[in-house]
Write a protein that binds this DNA or RNA. Sequence first.
DNA 1: GTGAATCATCGATGCGTATCGACGATGCTG
DNA 2: CAGCATCGTCGATACGCATCGATGATTCAC
Lengths: 337, 337
Amino acid sequence: MPTSKDVAQAAGVAQSTVSYVLSGKRPISEKTRKKVEAAIEQLTYQPNAGARALASRKTRVIGLVIPFIPELEMGSIMEFVSVIASTARQYDHDILLVTDDEGAAGLGRVVGQQICDGLILMQVEDEDERLPVARGLNVPVVLIGIPRDPSGLVCIDADFEMAGEHCVRDLAAAGHSVISVIDWQPAVMDRHVNYVDRFLHGTDVAAEALGVTVLHLPGGTDRATISESVDKALTSTTGKPAFIAPDRTIQDILRRILSSRGLTLGLDVSVIGSASPTLAELQPIPLSTIDLRPAEVSRRAVKIMCQLLDADSHGPHESLELVPTVITHRSSTLRPQ
Amino acid sequence: MPTSKDVAQAAGVAQSTVSYVLSGKRPISEKTRKKVEAAIEQLTYQPNAGARALASRKTRVIGLVIPFIPELEMGSIMEFVSVIASTARQYDHDILLVTDDEGAAGLGRVVGQQICDGLILMQVEDEDERLPVARGLNVPVVLIGIPRDPSGLVCIDADFEMAGEHCVRDLAAAGHSVISVIDWQPAVMDRHVNYVDRFLHGTDVAAEALGVTVLHLPGGTDRATISESVDKALTSTTGKPAFIAPDRTIQDILRRILSSRGLTLGLDVSVIGSASPTLAELQPIPLSTIDLRPAEVSRRAVKIMCQLLDADSHGPHESLELVPTVITHRSSTLRPQ
DNA sequence: GTGAATCATCGATGCGTATCGACGATGCTG
DNA sequence: CAGCATCGTCGATACGCATCGATGATTCAC
């Protein structure tokens, strides 16, 4: 592997000059720059990351702490990961994976060894055990999700409250006076991620404002639980029932139950779920969805991180950013009256 | 951040001694070791990764090249990623994400900058454009998937041929004489991953050996295509039909179509699909599945990589490892007669 | 009790880059 | 044309660790 010294020699300049050509931190004459660039090209020189990190005290690597919960929303997590990695490259950074099975100690490790300049935490829980560690690190940390106490932390997440409000508002506009919200599956509830509460709160706020009724019903990955929830919903209204089921597994079961009772989506009953556009369109009756915009959340998380890294004022930052959600009405909801 | 020099000072030894305590590459007296370890503990010293990489020429980081194909098998990819990251830690390595949207150039970058010691490529296609680049790199490369020409490369994948054979064998044993294999969805077929061919070949081999008929029918993410395939299957046998549908999206559609025709899984018709155990159990009729063992494939990929890194004989390695697949019969297949 | 062999530790050096101070060359002001 | 600021480049040094050769301290054999 060629080094900057080799490049310098080939270009007939000092090593430091090569460095300045690359960084642009000192003026370089056009002539010299051309020579150096030619040498770089010819030797296919690429700076050594280790040496660069050692000298500059910047690795240009961001640690991404992913949950190690097999089976739970794998696809959804991957969408974050993929977009985060891709966006990081746009800011000339790379992503190092830190799995949660190392526990909070993993954060201390990658920061302590100075493998990365900052951390993005995914799937932040209400009382996340990683937070005390995160607060003690002298590197920027960006959370995806909002803990109970976000003080002194930089958080970003989808605006679940707006999502809840929006769902209820639209269903009310379609003529529903009683709207049933099915909880996420127990495995998610047990994780104590507060987006659930924020979402439900949003539905309550809208219900109060519009004078409609919102029922909160338990979710589950077994047919029985949801079947029971559907029963409650049906007996609670004389009009056409409406369901909001943001959990993907649950919405699948819900749809089957409704159809087995002879209820046609978009005709006898409204259902708003959550799915990627492609998946939503793929359904027998295309599903109206609330888009929680994982890609946009991911992009912004990386952007915020890179801004923090550029500023590198290591003081205690604090901010909270909510990404607007978007409802797309397909065929599973009644038309607004 | 404390350095090994600080530790040396605190322990009253030379910096090199600290280094030898850590690496164990030279004998150290019990007394000295204790002193150094105490100092390390007290200062919470952690070696600087950049400096270590610079001096040792090893980063202890493995690059993981993930496909940047939104929407396609996200969940499945995440299972690989998660297990790979976690396994890498067991070998005291970390994982750097390299997204495919950088193209093959991304490989050259991370290796050229010496950010990582080796590469694991996921979703390797038949004529993968990354392969020429990979062959030219002087670092170990492990492929998950098998290209058309695997010469000079280290590959690992699930044994799709065995999977196909096994599916047909079990369905034949259950009394089916005509077995329909539904292709993967077009998006997968278009990627020219040859596991499709290997799987289909396996079904043909078994069919020939057992004297049963195997039909290859087109898959699709639209109901119409699969409906048509089902028709063909039904008219091709006087006995009870059997389906093998390894694509997850397709098996969902298939099940709906069969049930809408009044066919009960495990009674009138056999279906073997592919899904995680939890998901398979969750179905109204628990799905018999062929497990392609992504976790095991991931673990072995990392293991192979770490062995190559340890050996670090940078000669041209070549190997091909196939991971046995496992069929689990639940309720969607007829009992063997 | 002398020489050789082994053991434990130290000091020095190199890895490849960023960065600082210095210095000659050039341009400008009056 | 003297004096001074600016520009462009160089040399030297630091970053934190691994590693090699050297050296003093022990041990052992005879």
